[in-house]
Nucleic acid binder design. Structure first.
Length: 403
RNA sequence: GGCCCGUUGGUCAAUCGGUUAAGACGCCUCCCUUUCACGGAGGAAUGAGGGGUUCGAUUCCCCUACGGGCUACCA
């Protein structure tokens, strides 16, 4: 049946440059789709109007194209599951939020930011530094669970700003079967009543992923490990909305860590240690600040993608140099590492060197001559064609040809 | 603090109860080479700690330690 075919999505927010971890998530989605002859979808999660950055969406598409992992469906393509931009699906989210409210699985909350702050201050103790809006406190807050229906109608009538929160059930255990981690269990009492619909009418990530993964018939949902703690919210939503049988299989990918020290790799680490963390150059339209990309630094896309695939995954053979097609053939979620991996720029350069050695003069020639031109050097094609094979053995980066 | 995830050399990592615990990057030594690189031959370097289970644990279970993530009307 058609409906059982694999559909996966890469769902970034258009908030800036495309980070290594983001590209790798996209890559694993792509590889999985190719391996299973499925569809790879790009969905733009632009629900946070305050963080929206113009140009970021096109930039993401450009990065995927450069990496040769172009999506099959997306905002820039035809597709029967659109729109592929969440800002354009706004109406559907509200509809689901209202459905949840009428079912008693969600509620209106009128607490102002100040009131929330007060609540946190009031409940904050040494033992509980960050109090949550959960079953214990929701009955003390200003929401449709604590108001009479008259009060509720009044507030709604007055157009008082509100959010919609999920009502997490009490005393339940939620079991998540993660393709990488196996069974993960959560107690519903430990998770708070997350906001589903914001005061501006936009959904939060939580509502949007579930609604869209359902609408777009996503069969396997891969995302970074930072999402694991909110997975129980998503599972509850799939259940509340009555789609539990259609819930995708989850996989939470390990993080890419700083080469030194600890923690997630950030753009700052790249600046500090002298390597890029974005796929391509990214210029922030506001500050004008330019962040270097692997492409501009002289990486071949084949090498970049190869390197990323091997960061947290291997096929068990010990081989390391693979084309995208070979990767797709050998790829399996089960062989993805559970622990985060420290990024090693030296190893990344080695991958590039291997790919430069493998590359033919024909593929290198236009790239090298472009590099030379960037540096104001004009070179005859014929001469270049002779020089490249002589020097490519000693080049780690495309930029090394310039010297 | 709570919840969740993780832990094999400096780094990426193989091993799916029995191995002299692969391989790669980096590092070191030597060879090749006018230099660098490439290539070749070697070398140093690893199972966090403690309990179990088992004839036998890196591998399975528990505890501890350590690391990471989350704890927003951000994703």
């Amino acid at each position: 049946m058609e409906t059982t075919s694999v559909r996966v999505r890469f769902a970034p927010s258009p908030t800036g440059g495309l980070h290594l971890g983001g590209v790798r998530t996209a890559l694993f989605n792509y590889l999985f789709a190719r391996k299973h002859h499925g569809r790879f979808i790009l969905r733009i999660e632009d629900t946070d109007q305050t963080r929206f950055v113009p140009g970021a969406e096109q930039y993401i598409i450009d990065c995927l194209n450069w990496c040769n992992i172009a999506p099959d469906e997306g905002p820039h393509l035809e597709g029967q599951f659109g729109p592929y931009r969440q800002s354009e699906r706004k109406a559907t989210y509200r509809q689901y939020a209202e459905q949840l409210i009428s079912q008693g699985n969600a509620y209106y909350a009128f607490d102002t930011p100040e009131e929330l702050e007060n609540m946190r201050n009031r409940f904050r103790t040494e033992a509980n530094p960050s109090p949550q809006y959960d079953a214990k406190v929701r009955l003390e807050m200003k929401n449709s669970l604590t108001m009479t229906s008259e009060e509720l109608h009044q507030e709604l009538e007055k157009k008082t700003p509100y959010v919609v929160r999920i009502k997490m059930p009490a005393g339940r255990e939620i079991l998540l079967n993660d393709m990488i981690r196996g069974e993960v269990r959560f107690q519903t009492d430990q998770v708070d009543d997350k906001v589903l619909l914001k005061a501006d009418g936009m959904p939060t990530y939580h509502l949007a992923v579930v609604a869209d993964d359902f609408a777009m018939q996503i069969t396997h949902a891969f995302r970074g490990e930072e999402w694991l703690p909110s997975a129980p919210v998503h599972v509850m939503l799939w259940e509340y909305l009555g789609w539990k049988e259609k819930m995708p299989e989850w996989a939470h990918l390990p993080l890419i860590l700083k080469p030194d020290g600890q923690g997630k790799l950030s753009k700052r680490d790249g600046d500090r240690l002298g390597f890029p963390v974005f796929a391509m150059d990214w210029q922030d339209p506001k500050s004008g600040e330019l962040a270097k990309g692997f492409k501009e630094m002289g990486f071949l896309p084949e090498a970049f993608v190869n390197m990323l695939a091997m960061l947290g995954w291997n096929d068990g053979s010990g081989d390391e140099i693979f084309t995208l097609t070979e990767l797709a053939e050998r790829f399996s979620m089960e062989r993805i590492q559970k622990a985060g991996a420290k990024f090693d720029f030296e190893k990344a350069k080695w991958f590039n060197q291997e790919w430069i050695k493998k590359a033919t003069v024909e593929t290198l020639l236009p790239l090298v001559s472009a590099k030379l031109q960037e540096n104001g050097i004009e070179a005859e094609v014929e001469r270049l064609g002779k020089i490249i094979p002589m020097v490519k053995e000693r080049c780690q980066l495309l930029n090394d040809f310039v010297q």
